[in-house]
């Protein structure tokens, strides 16, 4: 089976309910409840990634271990501030270096007043700097990170600039 199916099978073990059959465009519509977690196959030509994985914050490390075993590399970690839902979202992008192509986006949501996510820098050292940047911009705290200090702003800055309610 190709790499997309292989990854789906490997990830399905983490999520007890099977992947929802609703497509991402219908999500959030009238009768469809927002999904809690699961693996969705997305339209690569439109969205740029093959899989959309929504997981709980504590599952992030297990997902990273599965991706590492399947031979992915961590492309980027970003944060999104959903101010009206009072949540932060941390997005992980995984990709493959050579061979068959498959890009996987992993998302997790944390409450805005206490954003804590376990670190994956023990599995992917690339996460070290990316998590520092997400902490710098949003204030998301990555537990057990070896060196969680600011990376782009001055060390003594006391604000998190990319939050939606920040204006200097």
């Amino acid at each position: 089976m190709d790499i997309l199916e292989k990854t789906q099978v490997a990830l399905a073990g983490l999520f007890p309910e099977s992947a929802l059959s609703v497509s991402p465009e219908e999500e959030g519509g009238q009768d469809v409840p927002p999904r809690e977690s699961g693996v969705l196959v997305t339209n690569f030509a439109k969205h740029g990634s093959h899989l959309d994985v929504l997981c709980r914050p504590d599952q992030v490390v297990f997902v990273a271990q599965i991706m590492d075993r399947e031979g992915y590399f961590l492309e980027a970690i970003s944060g999104v501030d959903w101010l009206d839902q009072q949540q932060f979202e941390v997005l992980y992008d995984y990709n493959r270096l050579g061979g068959e192509h498959c890009r996987v986006m992993v998302r997790t949501r944390v409450p805005r007043n206490e954003p804590m996510v376990p670190t994956i820098s023990a599995i992917f050292p690339a996460a070290d700097w990316h998590e520092r940047e997400t902490f710098d911009f949003y204030g998301v705290h990555f537990q057990d990170h070896p060196n969680l200090i600011r990376i782009l702003l001055p060390e003594d800055a006391d604000f998190h600039p990319l939050r939606k309610d920040f204006m200097p």
């Binding site: 465009e25 439109k46 969205h47 740029g48 990634s49 990709n95 890009r103 986006m105 998302r107």
Partner: peptide, 9 residues
Amino acid sequence: PEAGYYYSA
């Protein structure tokens, strides 16, 4: 553009 997550490389 419609709401969603997009990536280009």
